[in-house]
Amino acid sequence: MAVAHPTDVDTARVAGISDSLRRRRDVRGSLFKAAMALSLVISLGILAVLLFIVITDGWTVLSTRLGSFLTGTLRPDAMDAGISQGLKGTFYLCLIVAFVAFPLGIAAAIYLEEYAPSNRLTSFIQLNIRNLAGVPSVVYGILGLAIFVNEFDLLDGKFGIGAITGGRTPLAGGLTLSALVLPVVIITSQEAIRAVPSALREAGFGVGATKWEVIKDHILPYASPGILTGTLLSLARAAGEAAPLLLVGTITGFLSNSPGWFDVTQVQDKFTAMPTLIATWVTQPEEEFKIDNASAAIVILILFVILLNSAAIILRNRFEAKRSG
């Protein structure tokens, strides 16, 4: 049953109240919102234009000879040239980064978050890790060249890590890229570990778990989606780096005749990678190399990176769904 509104109202007061409640134009708020939206449109717009250009430029190759482009090798003739060696090189680089940088970085993050005493040395190390994350990648190339590529002769023997990697090889390149992404892996893993609620730690300790058990059974499982996302994103970055690889010695000629995908001896052989290949092609005089082939290779590399990032997001969502049950 509807109840009528009271009728004994003071009309003068009503006028005042209804005026004070009237919706006002929030000009500054609307401007702010528009500016934010514009920034988003600009950033996405640049990306869209870039994608549009490379896809249209690479379209002749992608639409007419995608198969032979993916499986073919480097040739002097642009119409025959393919990127299989570059794909293989990048694949091995990613594999090495995943096996070297991830365990090292995650372990270092666990140490810094869970075990390191909070003193000046620790904060000094923290500061340096943050700085290292901002060091230009070409500097890592020089580092890689000095540490992972070069060897020195001493008493009739070869010494240095270069003797193991074999010089300008995927192994040396992978180690260089590992060094490059390590700071990022450490920082993102630390952040993921720090985000574990202290209530969960206390719950673990409260039932008599040791520190190791709390880390293994509660902290790492809870932090794993965050760790995974950070590491896969850093892998995507490693896959796209050209500068350090150019220094470490990827080449685009004199490669051994295409070994199989899973022939692991190639990690100690001469190699090339997608970014190097693209960088070399765009400097070629022929339009077919400079525009068509290079653009097609860029599209493939972007797809590869998007694939890695999507994997990161899917895995994270799955873990998080499991966590909140």
Binding site: E202, A203, F205, T210, H218, P221, R323, S324
Partner: peptide, 21 residues
């Protein structure tokens, strides 16, 4: 201390079950 916590259990201010079954 780990043994102490097994003999002296604790219930916290906010319910904090493990994110498990």
């Amino acid at each position: 201390p780990v043994e102490v916590r097994r003999r002296i259990g604790m219930v916290f201010q906010k319910p904090n079950p493990f994110p498990k079954s």
